[in-house]
């Protein structure tokens, strides 16, 4: 286990380094510069002064070296657009994204597993077909379009749900999360449904389940006591795959619903060429994805007796 941890950690560090390298060069090569230098009415002298202040006059590799040197010491530098430490800006925004992601996973795992079981138990019946049909539709609708349509219906027409913001108070927060979570779930729910379904079918066809049936156990008992437990184990692994997808989804969802999270932050940062902020958000997001995959793997190895040696 320890060896696995060390190996995994080493790989993660290399991965993060590569991501920072690519991102740094990409964003610094972008035409234009930090937004403060990009006002219509700024004069050449003002731009020169700002460029000097922001330390943009060094060659890009030198700046990368400096950035990396500070970053390993935990200093992601100041945001070029507000002067705040990048870490502060991320810490401000991160909880909102975490909140959305957390509830989306909870929501889509619960609903997804239930639908997946229904689908598997009733395979090739209208129930199965309807659920499958719904899954495909979920995967096919552009999420922002669906979001706008929902806003038109629930916020504009019916005025039941707020069209933007995170809401105030328990009820307010709950209401403002309904639409974003539903939209985010369209990316994760169908995958979980399909995965649960095929996992169930596979387990059901296995020997021990057949044996249980042969012994004359009731179908329900077979399904719920034997099959389900084993079928759900692989579902854990799919969550690891869904996390990066979820993060991508937040970019869109946060933009549509004015949700103050990391997804919107990266778009703002890239557009305003806030180099430090782009780097900071990318690094934190990468660390997060790697870390959560890591946790998922560990849980998986604990609960699945078949996985004896991972890595």
């Amino acid at each position: 286990m320890l060896q696995f941890l060390i190996k995994r950690f080493g790989q993660s560090v290399i991965l993060i380094l590569i991501v920072t390298l690519i991102t740094f060069f990409l964003i610094n090569l972008a035409p234009g510069g930090p937004a403060s230098m990009m006002r219509m009415d700024a004069t050449a002298e003002e731009r020169a002064a700002l460029s000097e202040r922001l330390g943009l006059n060094d060659p890009i590799p030198v700046r990368y070296g400096k950035w990396l040197g500070d970053a390993v010491q935990g200093d992601l530098g100041p945001s070029l657009s507000s002067g705040q430490p990048v870490m502060d800006r991320i810490v401000e925004r991160f909880p909102h994204t975490l909140k959305l992601a957390f509830w989306t996973i909870i929501f889509s795992v619960i609903i997804g597993v239930v639908l997946g079981i229904i689908s598997a138990r009733n395979r090739n019946t209208w129930r199965d077909h309807t659920i499958n049909f719904g899954s495909v539709i979920g995967l096919s609708i552009p999420s922002f379009w669906l979001a706008i349509m929902l806003i038109l219906l629930f916020s504009v027409q019916l005025q039941w749900l707020p069209s933007a913001g995170t809401g105030e108070g328990f009820v307010g927060q709950f209401k403002s999360m309904i639409m974003p979570v539903i939209i985010l779930s369209t990316a994760t729910l169908p995958t979980i449904v399909r995965f649960t379904r095929s996992s169930m079918l596979e387990v059901v066809s296995q020997n021990y389940v057949r044996t249980a049936r042969a012994k004359g156990m009731k179908e329900k008992t077979v399904i719920y006591s034997h099959a389900l437990r084993n079928a759900l184990i692989p579902v854990i692994s799919i969550i690891g795959v869904l996390i990066p997808r979820l993060l991508s989804g937040t970019v869109i969802v946060e933009s549509v619903f004015g949700w103050p999270g990391m997804g919107r932050l990266i778009v703002e940062a890239a557009q305003s060429r806030d180099y430090n902020l782009v780097m900071g958000v990318t690094v934190v997001a990468t660390v997060l994805v790697i870390f959560s995959n890591f946790i998922v793997d560990i849980i998986y190895s604990k609960v699945d007796p078949r996985v004896k040696n991972i890595g």
Partner: peptide
């Protein structure tokens, strides 16, 4: 870092809960 984020998350929920009675 991760734990900090989680902590940040929960403390945030608290403050926004309080601000509701405005």
């Amino acid at each position: 870092v991760f734990i900090l984020f989680i902590a940040g998350c929960s403390s945030d929920t608290n403050t926004s809960g309080e601000s509701s009675s405005g």
